[in-house]
Design a protein around this nucleic acid. Structure first.
Length: 120
DNA sequence: AACTTGACGAGGG
DNA sequence: CCCCTCGCCAAGT
């Protein structure tokens, strides 16, 4: 039997559902985790419908640490406000520090490249 | 079936 | 740093 075509989106929602409060993932990162067939753009395309799904859609932001919901149906400040409620800090340019807040699923942890001095 | 449109991202200037 | 260009691929027209 053929697999449900909606499975393409479901896989994205599954990953998003794993993001804990107070952490974020980027569109590109999710595309890498899901592998072939997924690109940052298609992940974004899936996410535009996520507001009606039962997933923490607000925890997905762009690679610069900023919210991309600007001109869409969602007010751009709503996403940021929700994340700030979870403890994420944004600077005056609307960007947060991914070195601090980015979530890495199991099996996708980064190498120890991070300089502790940068976190202070 | 062809063309356009994105909640994107890397790289060059 | 900011700005622009190009690649990416599902969906809508």
């Amino acid at each position: 039997m053929n697999v449900n075509e909606k499975d393409y989106r479901k896989k994205v929602y599954d990953v998003v559902s794993e993001i804990p409060a107070g952490r974020v993932m980027t569109y590109g990162q999710i595309a890498i985790v899901l592998g072939e067939g997924y690109t940052p753009r298609t992940v974004g395309y899936v996410m535009h419908a996520a507001e009606t799904e039962n997933v923490p859609w607000q925890r997905v932001i762009n690679s610069q640490g900023a919210c991309s919901t600007g001109r869409m149906t969602i007010p751009m400040n709503l996403q940021q406000e929700l994340l700030e409620t979870e403890g994420i800090v944004f600077n005056e340019k609307g960007r947060c520090d991914l070195r601090v807040f980015q979530w890495h699923p199991e099996g996708f942890e980064p190498e120890e490249d991070i300089q502790p001095s940068l976190l202070g």
